[in-house]
Design a protein around this nucleic acid. Structure first.
Length: 579
RNA sequence: CGGGAUGUAGCGCAGCUUGGUUAGCGCGCAGCGUUCGGGACGCUGAGGUCGAGGGUUCAAAUCCCUCCAUCCCGACCA
């Protein structure tokens, strides 16, 4: 298919300057991509071959679900975004531009507005639904900090699908189909992944799953149960407190003792660690009081165990408000002593939320709301007025699955897909209504299903590599075989390799023919670096014995074959293997 | 936008503290020769507005100011 000396191809021995993660470094070194600006990349021919293969797998699986491919514009009128309200909500992450007449436009980060507008014009009746439309397109997000090459780029390729249905049941069916579709895609890519319950974020909606590819350097963390299969985004994971949670020293309330609250002078002791040392008690016997405020400057106190961390996502769910840490000024005005804050004697307008893990604990220490003082020997459920008990912390090693009580495990990963049930958020705002069977005009019920195509490319490299380079799964390897002619200056070898090359092409095998006049080692290293699954080596044995060597990238297995056997082996190979 | 750094050949870097010939090194690239199954070696050579603009100075890659770009740490997300 391609002779390497005629290809636009170059690899690099040295690491690029800024390469924090393996995947980025390899995608540069293997000559897949080239950075054009911060967070903006060119796909070079080799990288584009992989990208197109990933696209096609996504396309095939989407088509299997009955979804229809279309293509929406990258440039979108501000008008539509004003209708949905997101023109004002999205902030600086939205790439905005003006045309020559000063009209506002943006470069689409997603396409809910455009598709809803289309639905408005085309879907009039319940008979027009359910329908699922998708596109594979370039997206723009002016990320605050682009990072890790195409893993978090400002311009990237995404498949986004939008479903329209007349009732919740139909939405559930499509959601289910998309869930399975994403599983099939990731299985065809031979990736280790989890589909986890997820937060719905800015896009909105009530129910969602994230698809996470496991990778050591991933930015996302998930919690999962190896027993029953429960898995969730680390931030959302529900759990039960484990027995071995450093809690052994903490007394559990039996409801009989009478607690005597003591006030202790603790000058300058403002953090959990030093309080633990000062009072000579474990951190888990201390109540940490975190103060946050919502958009209307209402203040909330969150009580969590000293060994725990407040999970703002869960705190927001518990309060139903977007929260942020209290500013120094606001704390002062409410007479709150940061460092000595506690649940006792707090200003009454502050609502107190306590982690359910504290419910049974007694003999605890906490801030006294008085500079340089803490209180000890307190019992959360008796001594304080708690407005609400809720799960507001992150799980840690040793915590148990809420469903089956097995120990939870944690993994890092990369989010590559996200599916949502949007409901009627956009259809209501933008007037996408349909006439139902009962003659009533109703808003269309929507779902939205995204998968990052260019991100998959980066994530695959991140998950599948070794010290030699990339190890492509067969389904997306840029070529199946590198044909390596050792010592191309030997006329016999060159002629043989040339004819084997023609032979492979006529057999329909994707082959990269390395006929450069360089030392063998260079060819081996390059083939390994760019991750071609099979090397077919024409060496000095060929002119004499007519034998070739086949070597596998995944485990360096070497085999010797005669030509027709080698070709047969290569042709049959993908049927039995993933790499 | 906050905090930290960097910008010198296609790539990776040294030189800057303490201003002073012709700005170096490794990789890569071109030519010649020897090599030739896991990133060979020798010789020769091409390649630089030292990020941009301004200033200080007899003299600036080096000191000062401004701007631009890039990267790293936090909030966002496929």
């Amino acid at each position: 298919m391609v002779k390497i000396s005629e290809y636009f191809f170059s690899t690099y021995k040295e690491e690029p300057g800024n390469s924090d993660i393996a995947g980025y470094s390899l995608s540069i070194r293997a000559g897949l991509i080239k950075k054009t600006a911060a967070g903006i990349y060119t796909f070079l021919p080799l990288g584009l071959r992989v990208l197109k293969k990933i696209e096609n797998i996504v396309r095939e699986e989407m088509n299997c679900t009955g979804a229809h491919e279309m293509l929406m514009p990258a440039v979108q009128p501000a008008d539509l975004w004003m209708q949905s309200g997101r023109w004002y909500q999205y902030g600086p992450e939205l790439f905005r531009l003006k045309d020559r007449n000063e009209r506002d436009f943006c470069l689409g980060p997603t396409h809910e507005e455009v598709i809803t507008d289309i639905a408005f014009h085309n879907i009039k009746s319940y008979k027009d639904m359910p329908i699922n439309l998708y596109q594979i397109q370039v997206k723009f997000r002016d990320e605050i900090r682009p990072r890790y090459g195409i893993l978090r780029a400002r311009e990237f390729i995404m498949k986004d699908a939008y479903s329209f249905s007349a009732n919740e049941d139909d939405l559930d069916l499509i959601y289910e189909k998309m869930f399975k579709c994403y599983c099939s895609i990731l299985e065809r890519l031979s990736l280790k992944y989890y589909a986890v319950e997820a937060d719905t974020g800015l896009i909105g909606g009530k129910y969602s799953h994230e698809f996470i590819i496991l990778a050591k350097n991933g930015e996302d963390e998930i919690a999962y149960c190896p027993q029953c299969g429960y898995s969730a985004n680390f931030e959302l994971a529900e759990f039960k407190h484990g027995k071995n949670n450093n809690d052994s020293n903490v007394k559990i309330s039996t409801g009989q003792e009478v607690a005597k609250i003591k006030e202790v002078h603790t000058p300058g002791v403002t953090d959990i660690e030093s309080l633990s040392a000062f009072l000579d008690i474990p951190v888990s016997q201390i109540i940490k009081t975190m103060l946050l405020k919502d958009g209307d400057n209402n203040v909330y106190a969150f009580l969590v165990g000293g060994e725990r961390e407040l999970n703002i996502t869960k705190a927001e769910k518990a309060t139903g408000k977007k929260l942020e840490l209290l500013s120094q000024e606001l704390a002062k005005s409410l007479n709150i002593k940061i460092g000595f804050a506690g649940p006792l004697n707090l200003t009454p307008e502050v609502k107190i939320f306590a982690d359910t893990g504290l419910e049974m604990k007694k003999g605890m220490a906490a801030g006294a709301n008085k500079t340089d003082y803490h209180i000890t020997n307190v019992d959360c459920s008796k001594d304080f007025k708690i407005d609400k008990w809720a799960d507001i912390i992150f799980p840690v090693e040793g915590d148990l699955c809420k469903r089956c009580s097995s120990e939870l495990k944690f993994e890092k990963g990369i989010e590559i897909g996200h599916i949502f049930k949007l409901g009627t958020k956009y259809s209501e705002k933008m007037g996408a209504m349909f006439l139902d069977r009962d003659g009533v005009l109703k808003p269309v019920i929507m779902g939205c299903y995204g998968i990052g195509v260019s991100r998959i490319l980066a994530a695959v490299i991140e998950q599948l590599n070794d010290e030699k380079g990339i190890i492509w799964p067969l389904n997306i390897a840029p070529f199946l075989v590198t044909l390596i002619a050792i010592n191309i200056e030997d006329e016999k070898i060159k002629l043989a390799a040339d004819s084997i090359y023609e032979n492979l092409i006529s057999e329909g095998i994707e082959v990269l023919y390395d006929e450069r006049n360089v030392r063998a080692g260079v060819k081996f290293k390059d083939s390994d670096l760019i991750g071609i699954p099979i090397k077919l080596i024409v060496g000095k044995n060929y002119p004499e014995k007519k034998t070739l060597e086949v070597e596998l990238r995944k485990d360096s297995t070497k085999m010797t074959f005669e030509l027709d056997k080698a070709i047969k082996y290569i042709k049959e190979y993908p049927g039995k293997n993933s790499f």
